[in-house]
Design a protein around this nucleic acid. Structure first.
Lengths: 198, 198
DNA sequence: CGATCAGATGTTAGTGACTAACATTGGAGC
DNA sequence: GCTCCAATGTTAGTCACTAACATCTGATCG
């Protein structure tokens, strides 16, 4: 069996995308708590069970975020002579600055939803924890104590989340401005020129 | 009706304390997810319904935390000429240093539980959000822009949570050491002498 | 072209957190 | 003892999520 059966290629991805789209639409219209998984599944033309085969929780359908490895790389690439906190903020700032533009539309709709729902925000912190772990590991690799790295990553994430939530609340300021400003406040070294990886 | 009937005085408080105690015991033994509300209620000698009359969610029974106003005061009392981030960290450090000792035992057991359960950690962030809001408001009162205050409070909380979770994981270091160290890393000004309110 | 295998989906039944409406109890004051 | 009200109980329901088993669909191989 060389290249074995891949089943209905693309069908799963299609369902997955349909679920995400339906969830985004429904939650924007009715709010997250008032939207049931059954509604989302029905709108996407599948069953509740299929929903949970694609996403482990109701919240997960709105929380895709594949940038952790990317962020980790950019943090690790920061100059090794800086304090951990500055490396964390510099790496995260560099990552956000390089975010592919097409992703930003959906990101905006999702962040807006999250900013407006207590339930969703709680789940967001779970994701943030993973990102924080990635950042902390990148810092540790570059020679910081485990605890120092955790604290630096935590502070950096706290500032980043404040920026994201502020962005979701107001629509008159760009994400870059807010994120850059927040990280610069925590790591003043970033004030003049953001440290971008080579 | 001057001082109207207070009903069974003390009965409610007793039930509340019994629920908290039962929850702490059961969750330490079986884990948070494996412990049902029905078990907690039965152990405390009441019904599921009564549980939810005292605590809005299963997690809330482990999450009492009445120190927010206290923290807000100490943040507001920080020297007004410092940057927002330093005032936030200084105030929080002062608050933790002044925590009444008897509370610390229960606090430790709860933090240990929270550190070990993903589900509980997600709920913890909801509480943290409130503390963060209190800190941000205290900073704003002392003349910081709303956004600057949010970011400073967020970074401070991120570091504080890193310290708390580390404390829950290891038992060889004191809470004060970890919290002080974490806040000092974010606000180096705290390195020498912690700013305590008058 | 038809058999076959695997992955995607459906069905059913159940648990546990949480809510709402209504009934009951038990103690404090008259 | 009577009355009132807070605390608690009862019942019935919704929704997120899980597990075991059945079905369907389409790509590959003979």
């Amino acid at each position: 069996m060389l290249v074995t059966n891949i089943g209905a290629v693309g069908r799963a991805e299609h369902t997955r995308a349909a679920l995400q789209s339906a969830a985004l639409d429904l939650c924007e219209r009715q709010g997250y708590d008032a939207t049931t998984v059954e509604q989302i599944a029905a709108t996407a033309g599948v069953t509740q069970m299929t929903f949970f085969r694609h996403f482990p929780t109701k919240a997960a359908v709105l929380m895709e975020d594949p940038y952790d490895p990317f962020i980790g790389e950019l943090v690790a690439a920061q100059p090794a002579d800086l304090p951990a906190l500055d490396r964390a903020c510099g790496g995260v700032a560099a990552a956000w600055a390089l975010l592919p533009a097409p992703d930003r539309d959906d990101t905006w709709r999702r962040v807006r939803l999250v900013a407006g729902s207590t339930t969703l925000r709680a789940h967001m912190w779970e994701n943030t924890e993973q990102t924080q772990h990635v950042v902390a590991q990148a810092l540790t690799r570059a020679g910081a104590s485990a605890y120092e790295a955790q604290v630096a990553a935590g502070a950096c994430m706290g500032a980043l989340m404040a920026a994201l939530l502020e962005w979701g609340r107001r629509d008159d300021v760009g994400l870059d401005t807010l994120v850059t400003g927040a990280l610069a406040q925590v790591s003043p070294r970033l004030g003049a020129a953001t440290q971008v990886a080579p």
